[in-house]
Design a protein around this nucleic acid. Sequence first.
DNA 1: TGCTAATTTCATTTTTTTTTGAAAATTTTG
DNA 2: CAAAATTTTCAAAAAAAAATGAAATTAGCA
Lengths: 171, 171
Amino acid sequence: MPSSTSTSGKLSIQEMGKELEIESIDFFVRMMSMLGMPRSVGEIYGLLYFSSSPLPMDQIVSRLGISLGSASQGLKTLRSLKAVRTSYVPGDRRDHYLAETEFRRLFANFIKEEIMPHMESAKERIERMENSLPGQDPDTENFYKLRIEKLKRLTRAGGRLLPALAGLLKF
Amino acid sequence: MPSSTSTSGKLSIQEMGKELEIESIDFFVRMMSMLGMPRSVGEIYGLLYFSSSPLPMDQIVSRLGISLGSASQGLKTLRSLKAVRTSYVPGDRRDHYLAETEFRRLFANFIKEEIMPHMESAKERIERMENSLPGQDPDTENFYKLRIEKLKRLTRAGGRLLPALAGLLKF
DNA sequence: TGCTAATTTCATTTTTTTTTGAAAATTTTG
DNA sequence: CAAAATTTTCAAAAAAAAATGAAATTAGCA
């Protein structure tokens, strides 16, 4: 249950924003953890997603109650995923961060950066399998070959389908 | 580097099977860990994938050098994903396990069991966001509404696309 | 039914991952 | 250029996840 400092039934304007903020953070913490991202990364994105103005790191730190280190690392991760970008704020020397909200682009980038490299190394591993194959009795060899063929089809399908997927996303 | 007990250049038949086995285990350990599955689950599946005969649990334990507990839990997980099934072996009271190798089916099941439930709860969370929204100044409210609308489209797209994806997989 | 093998469960231990916090590095500006 | 603000880095601490192993349970068989 979200903490409330108000004793009345109605929430103040600030607190209403906070409630939404908490739901948003919750939402993205879960979303990101499905994608294998640490809690702090989800928290930061969730906070920025419902922020109408770009936030400097120390605001992120104080609003989320996380450490400077976490914030810095989390923002680095989000930057590398292009899930967040910096925006210039005149008269302030701090970097200000803004959430990238086009999920299609985020998704495409995630596939490219996080998934495809694995597909590449999977292909190499399959090649190594084929090399450690030869010289068995024919039945056994055939069984192995079939299995390897299946893996090839899997990686081929993955390699083609996943990048295409981002394009399919019409939302 | 795969350990070898042979000093000669040529590997014995058993050892050749082992080399392939090691690559297979390596392959699936990585694959599964991408999907958030623990190492042991990948190891077991990798072992079974290149096994022409069903294996009882104690074989899995001794060949992989993992504990009984891990094996039991891992097989439970794999069973629930329908990535593995038991097969009856006459004159042996142990359960014997066989890898399910139709990736399309595996994939469909994974989406249904592991992803879709999250999509459901995401929808509920979005509803809660809408409830914690009302009574802001019009501009702020509009900004929030837009953001919420985007999330809705995201979950809708996910909910429709992911199940369809398994069908698209022609391999 | 009682005995034994096979399997599951779960408290504990181990390993891995994430966070913290403070020192180091970098950047900005007076 | 130096002082101050900001950000990054990284060793250590904390937290989370996974593996272990032994006790408890279940299932098969004589």
